[in-house]
Design a protein around this nucleic acid. Structure first.
Lengths: 184, 184
DNA sequence: ACGCCGCAAACGGTATACTGTTTTAAACGG
DNA sequence: CCGTTTAAAACAGTATACCGTTTGCGGCGT
């Protein structure tokens, strides 16, 4: 790999360890790196982690976002005008990341960033195999995001936490199981 | 540092990155590594993360631990007979780690392991500056742990989640604020 | 034909070396 | 005496080199 990339082995090595942390690569017992295959349980775990982490993050971020909801509103506007599926997904993840970063919890935000790449990989795969991003689902996501902004602006941490929990749970429910074949 | 340790710089470099992941070291913008100083907010964040992660982990671990509660029971017995403060703390963290590992969520378990070293550092510091491990508190911890084992054996995931949440919250409440001075 | 052995190539980890940048401190001027 | 300049030392990142181990495969024996 180092030869192919024209760099020495140490940076490649470190990049592989970074990818391992992000869940995209795994190492064998002898230290060899392989691309980690996506098994449905991993997707479930990502969902479990999001459900555990994001609602408290939303609660903690509420005071900070009360006056700084602008980035979130810009994001919603951009999502409404987005043309491609990939763009919508990217903006959706951005929206959540803004909240995580605003929570003031550095480990939480760092953890989210490390989950994001894996999550994005899963969503891209789902996009290829299922038709998951319809107009209706986009509107549903936008609705939840708008609701969250209202919670933040009114400084309602408990409500933000609850809305975030429902948003993630609802989002998971209308998502196809990653292992399923295309339905319809 | 590499010269002092008698090894080359690359392994030192990687060790420092590992310590950064564990929260014990931080890097400046120019890439220099410093020991991260402990600020009370970091302790709060560890607590927030435990509260977010461990109750769901207990719920998910319940089916797995129904028949395999032996390690937990051994841990409780060892804790009851432990002689030193450090030993009790170590066993306490072990107890929680067993549950995290049994949750079947590899990222969750990995995350816990990376939090553990930082948590242990904090507890050691609290031990030096406060008298936090009295007989009463140890009994309280043991009581919660025993209660959790009962939940697991009866395969009561929801109860395990609730007990874990109360255990962590209660534990936090009788802990002194890390920034406070000794309160005789 | 099949399994076992042994060797060559590839690999992982780390020591050493090179290069550009940052830090430090001494020399200089105000 | 203090701020500025500048040169040397330290440093971060990475390329190269070395060594012990693993892997893959051709040849051997059964």
């Amino acid at each position: 790999m180092a030869r192919q990339l024209g760099v020495s082995r140490v940076p490649v090595r470190e990049a592989l360890f970074t990818l391992e942390r992000e869940g995209l690569v795994e190492f064998s017992a002898t230290g060899r790196a392989y691309v980690k295959e996506l098994v449905p349980h991993d997707f479930e775990e990502l969902f479990i982690l999001r459900l555990a982490l994001e609602p408290p993050a939303a609660r903690l971020a509420a005071p900070q976002l009360r006056a700084n909801a602008r980035a979130l509103e810009d994001n919603i506007e951009a999502t409404a005008g987005a043309r491609s599926l990939a763009e919508v997904t990217h903006l959706d993840l951005d929206f959540h990341q803004i909240i995580l970063e605003a929570s003031g919890q550095t480990r939480l935000a760092k953890l989210w960033r490390s989950l994001r790449s894996e999550l994005q990989l899963w969503l891209e795969r789902l996009h290829r195999t299922h038709e998951i991003q319809t107009k209706a689902t986009r509107q549903k996501t936008l609705g939840a995001h708008r609701e969250l902004v209202v919670c933040f602006k009114e400084e309602a941490p408990a409500a933000a936490e609850r809305v975030m929990r429902q948003h993630i749970q609802g989002w998971r429910e209308w998502l196809p199981m990653p292992g399923d074949a295309q339905e319809s």
